[in-house]
Amino acid sequence: MNLDPTDLKILQLLQADGRISNQDLAERVFLSPSSCLRRVRALEESGVISHYRAVLDTNVLGLEVDAFVQVTMRRDVEQWHENFSKALLSWPEVVGSYIITGDANYLLRVRARNLKHYSAFVLERLYKTTGVLDIRSNIVLQTLKESTELAGELLRE
């Protein structure tokens, strides 16, 4: 989909505030409300906007541990990828999972209430999953930048 400057501005504003009213959005991008709504619907229908969500404050919710975990699998175990992928879908502690390049096979982002909860997750679930050879944990000490917003510069050619 070709995005013009108005589409990019709409996306920027919606990323910053997904609850902005169509009226306010239209005013900010200098369109009529009906024209603005048509553009937003076109962005949704094309898949550029995949969904809307609330961003929760994990500290307020008491989730003290944020960890990135590299998982290396034993390749001699039959269907290791399928089995691991299926298992991680049932783990609420895993909030992100990625197949990566390098020495490990997967990178997981894990959230836990505290170190005891994280330790139980690693020992009772992760290490007990068939095919897991090694894990390397990196506990986040401080978050410097975290965003799901894509800057307009990234979206232009």
Rank of each mutant, 00 (worst) to 15 (best):
R19V: 09
I20F: 02
I20W: 00
I20A: 05
S21Y: 08
N22K: 10
N22E: 12
N22T: 15
Q23T: 15
D24Y: 03
L25I: 02
L25A: 03
L25F: 00
A26I: 03
E27V: 10
R28K: 12
R28Y: 06
V29M: 01
V29C: 02
L31T: 03
L31Y: 02
S32L: 04
P33C: 04
S34Q: 13
S34I: 12
S35W: 00
S35G: 15
L37H: 05
R38K: 11
R38C: 05
R39Q: 03
R39M: 00
V40L: 00
V40C: 00
A42Y: 12
L43K: 10
E44A: 08
S46H: 07
S46P: 00
G47I: 05
I49Q: 05
S50C: 12
S50L: 11
S50M: 13
H51E: 14
H51C: 12
Y52V: 05
Y52T: 08
Y52S: 09
A54Y: 14
A54C: 12
V55H: 13
V55K: 13
L56C: 07
L56E: 11
L56F: 15
D57K: 14
V60K: 09
V60W: 05
L61P: 01
L61M: 10
L63D: 03
V65S: 05
A67F: 01
V69Q: 04
V69Y: 09
T72N: 03
M73N: 04
R74I: 01
R74Q: 12
R75M: 07
R75E: 12
R75K: 14
D76N: 14
E78W: 08
E78D: 11
E78H: 10
E78A: 13
